[in-house]
């Protein structure tokens, strides 16, 4: 049996869905999910935010979203600052939400790092699984990727 459960992955997808839902009243929806082939790169968009986890689970969870999506989100929030820094901070905020939800669900079983953000891919990926779970998330007309690459430390 897989070492992760559906509800454990759902913790992260729900975090993203609710984030959009709460801020814009239009939640993001999961469009689909698949396993990334061993050694292949996961889908990367313009801005990425990642949290690293240790403890009973180890690996990382990365959200990557296109520039247009983040800009649209800021417009929906009546936020006029569309600078690169602010776009990147917004992805960091999303990653923070992932961390918050994970803390609530996994409690002391999961130690979670401060989110790191990058324009494009985040270097130094610490792969946990042979085939990370790639979950494609959709908001309005945009797609973002959520890569759940954590495994239970046995």
């Amino acid at each position: 049996m897989s070492d992760l459960k559906e509800e454990e992955i759902k913790v992260f997808t729900d975090a993203v869905a609710h984030y959009f839902g709460q801020l814009t009243r239009e939640p993001a929806a999961v469009r689909g999910a698949y396993l990334e082939r061993e050694g292949e790169a996961t889908p990367v968009y313009d801005f990425s935010g990642r949290i690293m986890v240790t403890g009973q689970y180890r690996g990382s969870v990365t959200l990557s979203a296109p520039r247009a999506m983040i800009r649209h989100l800021l417009v929906a929030l009546h936020e006029t600052d569309q600078s690169e820094d602010n776009l990147r901070d917004t992805v960091g905020e999303l990653a923070n939400t992932l961390a918050g939800n994970a803390r609530k669900y996994f409690g002391e079983n999961m130690e979670i790092s401060v989110p790191v953000t990058a324009a494009g891919a985040i270097p130094g990926s610490d792969t946990g699984r042979d085939r990370p779970y790639v979950i494609m998330v959709n908001w309005k007309t945009y797609n973002a990727s959520l890569v759940v690459d954590i495994e239970r430390a046995s």
Partner: peptide
């Protein structure tokens, strides 16, 4: 729906 695909990936894995 799309969210149901997560379940399939778990079995696939």
């Amino acid at each position: 729906e799309g969210a149901d695909m997560v379940k399939l990936t778990l079995h696939l894995d």
